[in-house]
Computed example of a mutant assay.
Amino acid sequence: MPVDSTQAAANAGLANMVTNPTATASNADKDMFLQLMVAQLRYQDPMNPADSGEFLAQNAQFTALEKMQAVADQTALVLGAQMAFGASSLIGRQVTYTDTAGKDITGTVQGVTFENTGPVLDVDGTQVPLVEVLSVKNGAAATPTTTA
């Protein structure tokens, strides 16, 4: 009984996902795509081979997908760096945030911690995620006095 190339690749992809459950969805998609292409080549009819133009188009699509994923990864890194620099610039400034009781609290940012979920501000001893900040004002720095 001949095996359909799509079915063979799908079976191989499922076996890979079962044996390697820690693989990410992106890696699983790449592996599945490559396994489909290999299965198409392996199980093609020798008297009616696959169109090389179609094969090249699939390869180009795969390459474009990898490049777009790399751009998305780099963009995420840039966004993280911008958030880190923005949070660091808040040290010494007054911020307003809403506490768990729903009350607006104002305090001075004493420091910043960088967590996996994003920057967390130390506002007068309270840990406040940056995304919960409602407003920012200049700190309580004394204004310079001039003497005549």
Rank of each mutant, 00 (worst) to 15 (best):
P2G: 03
P2C: 04
P2L: 06
P2W: 01
D4T: 01
S5G: 10
T6D: 04
T6L: 10
A8E: 10
A10T: 11
A12Y: 02
G13T: 15
G13P: 01
A15D: 15
A15L: 05
N16F: 08
M17I: 14
V18Y: 09
V18S: 07
T19E: 06
T19M: 15
T19A: 12
N20K: 14
N20S: 05
P21K: 14
P21R: 06
T22L: 07
T22W: 04
T24G: 11
A25P: 03
A25L: 04
A25C: 04
S26G: 15
N27Q: 13
A28P: 12
D29A: 13
K30Q: 15
M32R: 12
F33R: 15
F33Q: 07
L36M: 08
L36Q: 03
M37S: 02
M37L: 11
V38W: 01
A39V: 00
A39L: 01
A39Y: 00
R42E: 00
Y43E: 00
Q44S: 00
D45R: 00
D45F: 00
M47Y: 07
D51Y: 02
G53T: 07
E54G: 15
E54W: 10
E54C: 03
F55Y: 11
L56S: 15
L56I: 12
A57F: 06
Q58K: 13
N59R: 13
N59F: 15
F62I: 05
T63D: 14
T63F: 14
Q69I: 13
A70T: 14
V71A: 13
V71L: 09
A72E: 13
A72V: 14
Q74M: 12
T75Y: 15
L77S: 15
V78R: 02
L79S: 06
A81H: 03
M83Q: 14
F85D: 14
S88Q: 10
L90G: 08
R93Y: 08
V95H: 05
V95R: 08
V95S: 11
T96E: 10
Y97K: 04
T98L: 05
T100W: 12
A101T: 07
G102A: 03
G102E: 01
K103E: 04
D104H: 15
I105S: 02
T106W: 00
G107Y: 05
G107H: 02
V109W: 02
Q110D: 10
Q110E: 10
Q110L: 06
G111F: 15
V112R: 01
T113S: 11
F114T: 03
E115S: 15
T117C: 03
T117A: 09
T117D: 04
T117Q: 12
G118A: 05
P119I: 07
V120G: 03
V120E: 05
V120D: 03
L121E: 01
D122E: 06
D124V: 05
G125I: 02
G125H: 07
T126I: 14
T126L: 09
T126G: 03
T126F: 11
P129G: 01
L130H: 05
L130Q: 08
V131G: 13
E132L: 11
S135I: 01
N138W: 12
G139M: 02
G139E: 00
A140N: 07
A140T: 06
A141T: 09
A141W: 04
A142Y: 12
T146S: 09
T146I: 09
T146A: 03
T147V: 13
T147I: 04
T147Y: 08
